[in-house]
Every structure is written in C-alpha cells, then in structure tokens.
Design a binder for these strands. Structure first.
Lengths: 347, 347
DNA sequence: TCAATATACTGAAACGTTACAGATTGCCAA
DNA sequence: TTGGCAATCTGTAACGTTTCAGTATATTGA
C-alpha cells in the first residue's frame, strides 16, 4: 500500500524528536508537502493541509530552529543590548518582562547582549549584525546622533530604540516624554512657591538629557523661576558622589529650594545630601523625582513623584521591532509615553 | 596549479560572510582540514594549522551557529529561567550581569526564558529540554523538592540552581547562607537588647524559606529570645500588604522589638508600617534587613543591613553550568556564599 | 480528440558544519 | 624492493529546513 519503507531514523521514532521527515512518513506524503502544508501554502489541498496539521499537533511537532535558521537565515531572536554598568536596575528587569510579554506567543526568543563601560557601544551591534545573530535589536541609552542606529539603518536590520534620535532618520522608538516631565515638575514646584530650582540630569550625551534640560529651562522661564546650576552630577554618578555634591550644593548661600531628579536611586542620594546639610525635605526644599517602582513614597513621604513605566516601554519596543520585521513602516512604529501628573504623598 | 576553480559563491566573497568553504578556497585546503585545523585537531600539520588560523583571523571568520547547532546539537546557549511576577527586581539585573561577565569570552549566548505566575514552573523547562534550545539552564526560586531539578537530572541536561534542593540528588548550585544570615541577625538584635523578634520570611515553599526560618529559630533559643509570629506576610507579598500587616502587628500589645527582613523592598514596607503605628525605628524596634544594592542606609540610617551579592551569584551559577557542560563533576560545582556581618549605619 | 492548463504533489539541492571512511605520501624495517 | 605504518589530508554524507524545478493527474477549451 505505502511505497515508502520504514527508514532507519524513523523506526525508533518513539523517542526522538519529530521532524518533517517523521511527519512525511506518518502521513505518507513528501517532506516538501508537509513543510508547505504546515505554513498554509496555497498549492496544498485543503484536506491534506488539515490532516498534516492535525498529525503535527498530535505528536507535538516543533520546527527545528537550527534547520530553519540555516536554510532561511531567520533566527527568531530579538536581542536586547544593555550596558552592564550604567543601566538603571529596575529598567533591566522591567524591560525584559515587557519584551517577554509580547514575544511570549511568538516563536521569538530573547537574548541579552551586554557590553561594558570600556567597550565601544557599537561593538555588540557589529557582532550581532555581522554574525546575523538576531532578526531584531533593541537598544537603550540612545543618543541624538546615534552611531548604532545609523549602522543598523545602513545594514537594514530592524531595531527599536528606547529614546529618540535626532539625525533626520526615521526608525521605530519608544520614549517617555521627558520634556513634559521636567516642565511639569518645574511648574509643580513653582506652584509650591519654589523659585530657585536645580536639576539632577540624565547622563550627558543621551537624547533624553536634552529633552529634560529643555523642558526644565522652558518651564523655568515660563513660571519666572531661576535655575541653580548643578552640572557636577547626573544620575549616572555614584550614590556617594551625588550625595556629597548635593550636600555641598545645599550648604551654599544661594541653594536651591526645589530639585528635579530623573531617577529614583539618585533621588535617595539627593535626599541624603539634603539632610546631611541639615535641611528638611518639604520645608526647606521640595524634590520631584521620576520613579519606576512605587517605592519612593515609602522613603520620604514628602517626596513628589512621577511614574515611568519601563515594562510598558519593553512591550512597546518589542511590538515595534516585531512590526518592522513583519514589514510595517518604521515611521508608524514610534510611540511616546506621556507622564502622569506629579503625585504628592497619599495616605 | 590549483585544481580547484573559483566557485560561484566565493567569487563575490568580498561582501558575504566567510564560511569554511571560503577559508578552504583561500588556503587551497579541503573544508574538513580547515574545520579541524581551527579546532586544533591532532592530525593536522603544525604549519597548516597556523596558516589556517592566521587566515581565519585575518578575514574575521566566525563559525555559523546554525550550522554547528544543526550538525552537532550544540546550541552554545545558556538559558536563565525567570518568574516574571515574583523575582526580586535587582536580582534580575544583577544576575544577568553576573552571568554575562562569565560567558563574555565564551561562544555562549544568554537567553532569558520567562514564565508567569499562572504557569507551571516546569513548562519553560520542558520547552527548553524538548526543543533542545539550550546547553545549560539556570533556575531560581528553588524548592526543597524541586520538580525542575529532578526533570533536568533525568534528562541529563546541565543546570544550576540558585538555592539548594533537598532531594538527596546532587547537582550544581549557588546559594547564600540564609541560615547564617537569619541567625546572625537574631544574635545582633539580641546584642542590642531586643527580646521579642519577628521574621519577614522568604516565600513559603522555597528552600531558603526553610533555611531562614531554621536559622532564626535556632538563634532565638540560643540567645533566649522569643518569636513574635508574623506568618501573614512574606517578601512575595505586595508592598501594601506588608505595610498594613506590619502596622497591625506593631499595634498589638506584645509587638516585636526586633524584626528580621529578607528583602530590601519588603523592608521599606516594614518600616513604613512601623511608622504608621507611631513607633520609631532604632528606639522602639530595630530592623535587620538583607539588601542587594546599598540603598537601605539612605532610607533610614537606623536600619541594620546584610549585603547579598546577586552579581556574584550570577557568575557562580554561570561558572557552574559551564563547568558541568565541560564535563566537571556536578558535586564539585556547588558554592555557598557566607553573609558579611550585620552593618550599622556608617557616616 | 488533443493540447493547454490548473491542481496537488514530489525529489533534489542547498544553507554551514562535523564525522566517517578513505586516500595519498613518505619513511622505515625486513 | 616491498609491505606496513604513521602523518596529513580529502570527499561525502548527514543534521532539518525551504526552494527550485519539476511530475503526475484531472480539467478545461476548441
């Protein structure tokens, strides 16, 4: 009846992982037919298609990734590129979970590609592209003129950036509106009667540094407050550095009476510095801080916070890369997250 | 002279990624020879070996992972399996960096395999093993009788657990000595004159819950202090739950005058609860807490802390898995990290 | 009736690698 | 001289998949 004979690899098929060959043997079809039936190719009969898919489901067939990858070049991998020293801690875990959520019901795997302070940030990108290790890449710590984005754009590899660029090139991104955050923070402090404000900036060189500084400056002149320069620190500095320099700042004559901080960990240090200088939060100075986990209010109830959702960022970034891989227009895969209002302590 | 002719794929070799075939063509050798020369096989002449390796380095040859994987089954992948809801935040980022450090100069990639609360923790493991997606696996949230460890042991796939098991089976692990932590914490509190102690436990069911509880209990009887039961919370509970229940606890007549907490985030909530009840840290009650980043002292200077290094854990776990993959004895790949002393606030 | 065409299927080749089973050479002992 | 053997090297097949170029059968148009 069946002209095909049991082949040596399929005899012991009880234990081995099923392949297209196994399916072909079981259905009495050719591997080509099976392959096409599984991906709903048009030239396969409706009944055959159903039959193959049924058998495949029954025996738990899963395509061999190495086979697909070797043949097609498709890796089914998304790479998240992270700086091992400077990334915000909660950012790492939240963004990973955000990405995971989105790729959970796709064939994609998430690989984490780290690079260290000493390396050129372009190194890991070059590696990924040259070795064809991923179908899509997510990068953070985005710069206005970002060589990584330019490089990937040139090679045509889909990617998404956490944060925007400013190169006149269009690519997917997700960003938090830090201009809005900084300006709202200033307005809120002004509403509390604060007039001399300082800013604990994002890392110099990153795009959102510019956004933040601009939002801060614009709102300052809008409300008629003045800036107390505090350029000696950014949220990339160590806790100790931020703490001691904040204390120095707060001991000066023209110390600020309001501070805007761009990261929760930095805010802890800022508050410690304020108190080192013998001042009291909420009385001598108010602080507005971004946070990604809802912990700052436990720290000092006087703190004013704005929440940034990194998990959402992860999801959006994953959606963006997958969209690009899927053929959507890069320009349609950009999203901006609007900060909620400045939240005082509740209950 | 050379009997091999330029083949169609190698003519435009300027742009394409070099393969063994490219190297074979350039050196005038067969692909087999090239393959073996690159991996220092004994039957290759010393000069040939050097020549091949030189050319390979020059043109930046990198073995195609899909090719290797398809042929040998070796994935060069380590998978880190994480619970997307319950993992400690800093744990995720630190352990990833720890693992990264170790695998940086190996051919291994790190893939993150998440699973959610609703899933059977065995699901992701089954997936990894059935699809042969990784050469080694790292799991956390280890239980005394852990089905995942048993499963992988049965299938013979190398893995390492963060935390020990208690099944009479031997496998690589890295663990923090939570017995020592809890007992040291109790002794320290007793040294401060605290007599009625409560414990904010690890998640029930995990091995280190047992270790912690035992260390706590043993030290209690050693120093002659008593336990104030606080079984309504663990560090897996939400911040809000811990906070309100701590407040309830602290309003009772026989409230504790010392608390041991196993995670920094929980400690924030505990302190908030203490203060909700109108009590003062350091006066009415002392708290010893584990922490993985050095931030708790900024929170309240009265807090007593013990540091746990998750980055180290990541490195150790990676070393353990790689060791097992490399043929070392699983029993020789176990490590225990001893807690440092309880640290009071320093300037 | 015959050719043209659509439908449903198929084998062979290729992706890059490694393992197997030789093949060629030179050297030495007999 | 010859047989044996070590030292080097080589071609082929296979891993599991998709694509290319078909083949066989039924259906249609004239």
């Amino acid at each position: 009846m069946d002209r095909r004979s049991a082949e040596k690899d399929d005899e012991a098929s009880a234990k081995e992982r099923p392949t297209l060959k196994t399916l072909a043997f079981m259905t009495g079809l050719g591997v080509t037919t099976v392959s096409r039936a599984l991906k709903d190719a048009p030239e396969i009969g409706a009944e055959t298609r159903r039959r193959v898919q049924l058998v495949a489901k029954q025996i738990g067939y899963r395509p061999n990734r190495a086979g697909v990858r070797l043949r097609t070049g498709k890796t089914n991998v998304i790479s998240l590129v992270l700086n091992t020293e400077r990334e915000i801690m909660s950012f790492v875990s939240d963004i990973i979970y955000g990405v995971s959520e989105v790729i959970a019901d796709t064939p994609y795997h998430l690989i984490v590609t780290p690079y260290s302070r000493s390396q050129d940030p372009l190194d890991p990108i070059r590696y990924l592209v040259e070795t064809g290790s991923a179908d899509g890449v997510i990068i953070s710590r985005t710069q206005p003129n970002d060589p990584r984005a330019r490089y990937m754009l040139e090679r045509g590899i889909p990617f998404a950036t956490h944060g925007r660029t400013d190169m006149g090139l269009v690519h997917p991104y997700h960003d938090f509106d830090n201009y809005a955050f900084a300006s709202e923070a200033v307005r809120h402090l002004a509403g509390l009667g604060r007039r001399r404000l300082a800013l604990v900036t994002p890392p110099v060189g990153l795009t959102y540094y510019d956004h933040t500084v601009n939002g801060f400056a614009d709102a300052l002149s809008e409300v008629g407050a003045s800036e107390v320069p505090f350029n000696t620190v950014s949220i990339d500095h160590t806790i100790e550095q931020i703490r001691t320099r904040t204390a120095q700042l707060m001991r000066r004559d023209n110390r600020p009476d309001g501070i805007v901080s761009c990261a929760a960990a930095a805010t802890l240090a800022v508050v410690a510095g304020i108190e080192d200088a013998g001042l009291k939060l909420g009385r001598d100075v108010d602080v507005v801080s971004k946070q990604s986990s809802e912990l700052l209010h436990l720290f000092r109830r006087e703190l004013l916070v704005v929440n940034e959702n990194f998990r959402l960022a992860g999801s959006e970034l994953a959606r963006a890369v997958l969209g690009w891989i899927g053929g959507k227009e890069p320009g349609s895969l950009q999203s901006l997250s609007t900060p909620g209002e400045v939240l005082p302590y509740r209950g």
